[in-house]
Design a binder for these strands. Sequence first.
DNA 1: CGCTCTGTTGAGAAGACTCAATGCCTGTGG
DNA 2: CCACAGGCATTGAGTCTTCTCAACAGAGCG
Lengths: 233, 233
Amino acid sequence: MSYCDTCLVRNSAICAALDSNEIEALNSIGRRRHLEPGESLVWEGDQSVLVANVIEGMLKLTTGTEDGREQIVGVVYPADFIGRPFGATTSHSITALTSAHVCVFGRADFDRFAAEHPALEHKLLTRTLEELDRTRKWMLLLSRKTAEEKVATFLLEMAERLANTACEHSDGKNSAGHFELPFTRQQIGDILGLTIETVSRQMTQLRRDGIIDLPTRREVTIRDHGALEAIAG
Amino acid sequence: MSYCDTCLVRNSAICAALDSNEIEALNSIGRRRHLEPGESLVWEGDQSVLVANVIEGMLKLTTGTEDGREQIVGVVYPADFIGRPFGATTSHSITALTSAHVCVFGRADFDRFAAEHPALEHKLLTRTLEELDRTRKWMLLLSRKTAEEKVATFLLEMAERLANTACEHSDGKNSAGHFELPFTRQQIGDILGLTIETVSRQMTQLRRDGIIDLPTRREVTIRDHGALEAIAG
DNA sequence: CGCTCTGTTGAGAAGACTCAATGCCTGTGG
DNA sequence: CCACAGGCATTGAGTCTTCTCAACAGAGCG
């Protein structure tokens, strides 16, 4: 009996490119692993020894300077693929933001398996291309947008991301204009390339302007979506 | 007679994954094209109708805000692959920085060809993964490094890039510590997320400190490589 | 109830930007 | 051959944004 039969992301992860026999074969080289919030799966600069599918939870990809400045270079969600196949080292750390479940493969095993299954590689390629598009779009934000624009852009993106998941879970928390932030202010700062104080100030300003509301620290209500988009630029 | 027989990048572009029959087939769907400096091959937001290999010259990938702020999200060199296969739209413009030759394919033709040649897709995948690594590393620079660190990092990277090409061309211009900048100050600013004035000031400061020399506007000599690395962080 | 962790707010400093003036090449035409 | 225009680069002065440092407030928890 394969883990995959009950896998939540069976049909949306890269595994969707495989038939049931192939899934069985992939399953035999993988294993499930649980991560506590804050626990890391790989560290920046490490030998790339493992790759994984995210089954549940959220993880951050980070890189940093020697003197401790950190930048989040990506956030991954269920069904996303993580790790660096076909390469010697990992260019970023991977750390759980929430409690998370991943499906881990030894990199060498995975590389070998992928080489024999072009459909899997194709899926991996299209995902990598999409990720590259997203990353490049983020570069513009990091380098050219003001703090106000960054925070507005971030809130819009979170609203969109979480509106999708709301449909699945139907927990009522995340509707069109209201959602629960899955990040601390520090993490938002690390994503946007700002300090925690600047993030806080911009959020307060948007609340004062009546564009958003902050019922609690972790909740956000978008009161004027158009205005937020205008600010995001 | 195939163009490919005389292609300068035949063995380093993704074409290297193909045997001579396959190259012939790929050649039949591609054509050469010349670009003048400043001429664009694709525009941000366009339908993705073509992809290409760079044969000669340098091109920039850019994205921008509505109000005209621009960010260079990548620079490509001979043998690099450009364009967005397997996707509807292009997330960035591609513009020649120098006079350039590219080998262009219709995207639909290329997608079809790639689907039938897993070795080509594999090569494309590894390249895309490398590009993603580079791009993420650049995010840290854009968001967390100071102007001084940015310029130092840029000069080191250029020195390394151009040292490699020096071996091929042996024109004597680009040795370990000396090279000719292929960018204007404005372009350097667009790459580093700085204004032209800030770039200029940082370069001047590095010259005053005796770390680099600037014999002409376009030439750079690195006098103290270690110091430059220390500054780059 | 007090402790800790996270977030908010304020004051001042520092870095980068804007605007403006000047300098230096290159190429063109007299 | 020289003068001059136009583009690029440098330099300076002043402003604005964001960061830093520091104090304080509020939520969650033992």
